[in-house]
Computed example of a mutant assay.
Amino acid sequence: MAIVLGENQYGKAETRLVRVDRDADEHRLVDLNVSTALSGDLTETHLTGANDKVLATDTQKNTVLAFARDGVGQIETFGLRLARHYVGQLASIHRARVEIEQYPWTRLGPHSFTRSGEGTRLATVVFDGEATVEGGIKDLTVLNTTDSEFWGYPRDEYTTLPETKDRILATAVNARWRFSSTQVEWAEAYATARASLLDAFATTYSYSLQQTLFAMGKRVLENVPDIASVRLSLPNQHHYLTDLSPFDLDNPGVVFHVGDRPYGLIEAEVVRET
């Protein structure tokens, strides 16, 4: 029986980077978390420890920081710059993957900011001679206080959940979308996709979180032609009506306690047919 090396990659995870543009009275702030992963002709490194084909992970980290000296721009563009550079540095490196998280800050003044809750922007770039780009957002918390139902599901001896025709629907949106091109107005695409997710969540009368998920993905594809597919992961942040009867009080749908875990997790991909 032969024992061989399978697929492998290595890299530098979570290089934290803050770039401040000071070329105007009103400063601009970019706050990133960058992870890189490389793969290629690295069998000997695993089998013998030879490092002559390895671009050190510290070098990968330094490259991220050095590239930021000339500006970051849109994170998709920054990821493309890095990925193409890594593959071009050594003949042994055939593929680079760059994942970027951009943390949101809201301006308070010319040089003052506060961390906002508008969601973390995402980009993933893979380059192996050809480039593919994904964008996305995570931790975008949304809630509808009504216009959500959940009923009509099968019941068996283990079912205790009561049906409801009016409930709070809350989730933290985690979405990733795949672009069909690398020639995209990245900022516009991100803003439109994010607005589409929010609009669909707010305007869809929901009979299930699955239905809401599909409506959100569909709205993104309708509004951003450069996006080929959207993967969504929506944890159901359960809000339970609190029983106040032990205190001789009624509860006309105004007091809820929030369940931490376990929670429902709804995931699907919405795809543009070609």
Rank of each mutant, 00 (worst) to 15 (best):
G264I: 15
F247S: 08
L55C: 01
L55E: 01
V98R: 10
S196D: 03
N51C: 00
V64F: 08
M1T: 08
L122I: 11
E163V: 03
F78C: 01
P162L: 11
R84E: 06
T141H: 05
E7M: 13
Y240G: 02
T159W: 01
K218D: 15
P235D: 00
R22E: 07
V20H: 11
E185W: 07
H46W: 06
D248Y: 11
I3E: 15
S35D: 03
R28Q: 03
G109Q: 03
R16T: 13
S229Q: 12
I168H: 03
S35E: 00
K53H: 14
V220S: 11
G109W: 10
N251A: 08
S180N: 00
K53C: 15
R95M: 03
E7P: 11
Q74T: 08
R107E: 04
G135N: 08
A202H: 09
A68F: 12
S92D: 15
H94Q: 15
A37C: 10
T146P: 05
V64T: 07
T171R: 06
S116K: 02
G79E: 05
T114R: 10
T141M: 09
I75G: 07
R28S: 04
A96L: 04
A228T: 05
L17K: 12
E130F: 13
S233L: 13
N251L: 09
L232C: 06
E163T: 02
W151G: 03
R28D: 02
L17G: 04
R107Y: 09
F113Q: 00
Y240A: 13
V20E: 10
T132A: 15
E7C: 06
Q210A: 06
Q9L: 13
L197E: 06
H27D: 06
A68N: 02
G49E: 12
V18T: 13
T114P: 00
T204M: 11
N33S: 12
T59S: 14
T182Q: 02
R178D: 04
T274E: 15
D23N: 11
V270D: 06
L197N: 03
T159N: 02
D70Q: 08
G117T: 04
W105H: 10
L244G: 13
R81E: 08
K165Y: 14
T182V: 01
V72T: 03
N8R: 07
F201C: 00
T242M: 15
